[in-house]
């Protein structure tokens, strides 16, 4: 037994390290979950005279998807968002983060527009208030304006087919 002690210690260390490797360091728990979504008032993309505030969504469960035309992984999740928009289960609001209007509009015409509307956060201040650090990010906000969940990085099919329906079922209960 004693002879195998180093081997056992080594084995335990290996298991711990392997578990460590499975974790995603990019997934940082957001301190905003369970808190009300930060307020803002920003112009709407391609209708710069009108503004949007989260208060307008009061009473609805909705998604706030942070995107940009320069963001490569946004391309990856965009078809999924288009599909979700077609299902008409939940309104999606886009937050066009640190982008220019022209390429953003072009991007939406080329790739399809899943958003009810997109808001323009050219300076990125609203992004900071929402703790955005890696586009794309998606926030699920409930009827009372509280952030229920945050998806960091591109949405995956499992996110939309499993996680989101589960979260929505909990909210509608």
């Amino acid at each position: 037994m004693k002879r195998f002690l180093p081997l056992i210690i080594f084995g335990v260390l290996c298991v711990i390290l392997v578990i460590g490797l499975q974790l995603n360091p990019k997934e940082i728990p957001s301190p905003l979950i369970g808190k009300s979504a930060p307020q803002f008032k920003l112009p709407i993309l391609s209708q710069s005279s009108t503004t949007f505030t989260p208060e307008q969504m009061q009473g609805k469960v909705w998604l706030l998807n942070v995107w940009a035309s320069w963001c490569v992984s946004c391309r990856e999740e965009h078809p999924l968002l288009n599909e979700l928009a077609k299902q008409n289960t939940i309104p999606i609001i886009g937050l066009n983060y640190k982008d220019k209007n022209d390429p953003a509009i072009e991007w939406l015409t080329k790739m399809g527009d899943p958003y009810q509307l997109s808001i323009v956060d050219e300076s990125g201040t609203v992004g900071i208030n929402y703790g955005v650090y890696g586009v794309p990010e998606t926030f699920l906000i409930d009827q009372k304006g509280i952030i229920v969940h945050k998806f960091t990085g591109p949405l995956t099919p499992t996110n939309l087919q499993k996680d989101l329906p589960q979260l929505l079922a909990k909210l509608n209960r």
């Binding site: 940082i28 728990p29 957001s30 301190p31 905003l32 900071i128 208030n129 929402y130 703790g131 650090y133």
Partner: peptide, 8 residues
């Protein structure tokens, strides 16, 4: 910063 990005 902690309010927005957490202890991390």
């Amino acid at each position: 910063m902690v309010e927005r990005y957490g202890d991390f």
